[in-house]
Design a binder for these strands. Structure first.
Lengths: 200, 200
DNA sequence: TGCCTCTCTGGCACTGAGTGCCAAGAGGGC
DNA sequence: GCCCTCTTGGCACTCAGTGCCAGAGAGGCA
């Protein structure tokens, strides 16, 4: 049974990869909104109906990585000793996951597309909210908050702000055409948020 | 001409209000996604086509306020002396705008719907991003950042984090069934984000 | 080899959102 | 009365997304 399953998932993943590859090509070539699902299906040589068996939405093609990145982020964060303070731990986790990214020029194009396409932007933020749910439990531990007190905003606030900083950094990174360093932008964003002295 | 315009806009605003009222009733009664535009149009006694002349999207009915609230927020913020530090100024602006809200029980239902409906959630975050654009210039002034240096993430980071805190507070406010105090939740969220001592 | 079953696939038809186009109507100015 | 303008409704269309069903292919079993 496990052997079968491996075969199934393997071919299934192959189709995933094929669709993603084909669709990304079309997106970068002619724009996200200008590309229809029929077009993707035709180019990938599958039926329109089958497309929807692999991706629920056109946006999911672009943002599929974000979901898995979230899981990776959580695992990375949970591997960091609890003695490390929340912001430090988050910073470290972000850096490690970001370090895995290859081909920054392609990434830049995709990021640019994401920031410029409203529906993609919205969905990407939704994914970031899912990150929040994944990361909050660990931050609660670091803060020493008792299990299920839902009225304490601390952990949510920290994670949410950290992701907001990441988003701001990403935005600026795109705006500068990939010139600036993403990690550096993130650090400066966090610094600005957390510095007590605000005005001379 | 100005008299005409007033009449036009007045009747136009009347239709806006009518559609909004009717639609909100349907949303709260049978759910957002379960309500179709045809239904809204029929109930409001206008044609489907005319509906789209007033609202670009079904979501815009619910989130129409957020756009105007953003403008109000900007004006409120700009009325606060520049000597006031960013976080303090934002806090004050949020409180003033929030104070105008009537009927917290209705607000709670709407907020609940917004957090539970994915498409609404996504759009509401988009609106919050627009707030960001509105508020950042003023925060830049408070930080003393020179006009058009786009590579400084400070102002964006602060505004983005503040809105994130507001969002977290709102989320918890809904989760507690409106029991907790929104302003208090916000303060605690900001405190958690900005406190240097993170772990005992 | 033939049969059974399970899954993947494609095709069809449908709903619902959103848009472009055009003709008809309401209201004000002359 | 007529003209101009803005609004309205209706029609037809594209595109996203879903439900349903029939057929193809692969593996298990006698």
């Amino acid at each position: 049974m496990s052997n079968q399953e491996r075969l199934w998932t393997r071919s299934r993943q192959a189709v995933y990869a094929e669709i993603t590859s084909v669709a990304m090509g079309l997106f970068l070539e002619q724009g996200f909104e200008q590309t229809t699902i029929d077009q993707i299906a035709a180019t990938a040589a599958i039926s329109r109906r089958s497309f929807f068996r692999y991706f629920g939405t056109k946006e999911d093609i672009v943002l599929g990585d974000l979901a898995s990145q979230g899981l990776l982020l959580r695992d990375t964060l949970e591997a960091i000793p609890l003695a490390v303070a929340p912001w430090e731990a988050l910073r470290e986790a972000f850096r490690k996951v970001d370090g895995l990214t290859r081909q920054r020029d392609v990434m830049l194009k995709i990021a640019k597309m994401m920031y410029e396409t409203p529906s993609l932007r919205a969905r990407s933020i939704e994914k970031h909210l899912q990150w929040q749910e994944l990361l909050v439990p660990n931050i609660r531990l670091r803060l020493g908050i008792d299990g299920d007190d839902p009225s304490d905003p601390a952990a949510d606030a920290i994670v949410s702000s950290a992701i907001a900083c990441l988003d701001v950094a990403g935005q600026l990174w795109v705006r500068t055409g990939g010139t600036a360093d993403l990690a550096d932008l993130y650090d400066r964003a966090v610094l600005a948020v957390r510095t007590p002295i605000e005005k001379t």
